[in-house]
Amino acid sequence: MNIFRFAGDMTHLCSIVVLLLKIEATKSCAGVSLRTQELYAVVFVSRYLDLFFTFISVYNTVMKVFFITSSFCIIWYMRHHRIVSQTYDREQDTFRVAFLVVPCIFLALLVNHEFSMVEVLWTFSIYLESVAILPQLILLQRTFNVDTLTSNYVFLLGAYRALYILNWLYRYFTEPGYSQWIVWSSGTLQTAIYCDFFYYYVVSWRKNERLSLPS
């Protein structure tokens, strides 16, 4: 495992920890899209089915279990926590996730490495992850809730994507025969969406001094 991959995983992990800490400390999930969080839960569950029949490393297993449990933990807070659930922007978070899920299902059935249940679900998770942030993007543009912690979350997620691209470049040049074009193309789309996100933050920050960029 190279340093870019490890740093990417760590920023991904930190982004989730930051979000959980924000929710726990402020007892508020204002500005957080439940739909995006539910899409991430679907992504993790459909991708990490191999937990049951493939062992790669302790690190790999621990991270997979962390991603699955933490995503359900966030969903639990937003749906069921007595105080936190009341701060959820229900009326604003109305993105139709079917518009993302259904095309991803069809694309995964059509474009995959192998037509098997596990492989198609894995491919579906790759496609879905690349667009899962969109409800969050729409929600932030509607509510203008760009508090520092939410923007830290988004910034860390963006850093995770950028580091994974560096990881793929590194592996491409150092590992003979290393190639995974489904992951590459989806990851590039995902990073492009984050760039759009980042642009939005810069614009918000310029418009309003109160909104600060993550340091």
């Binding site: 493939t54 790669i56 790999n60 995959n112 490495h113 192998e114 037509f115 990881n167 995974q180």
Partner: peptide, 10 residues
């Protein structure tokens, strides 16, 4: 479909 890549990334 081509060769299935190893799934060692998260």
């Amino acid at each position: 479909p081509d060769q299935t890549p190893p799934k060692d990334e998260l």
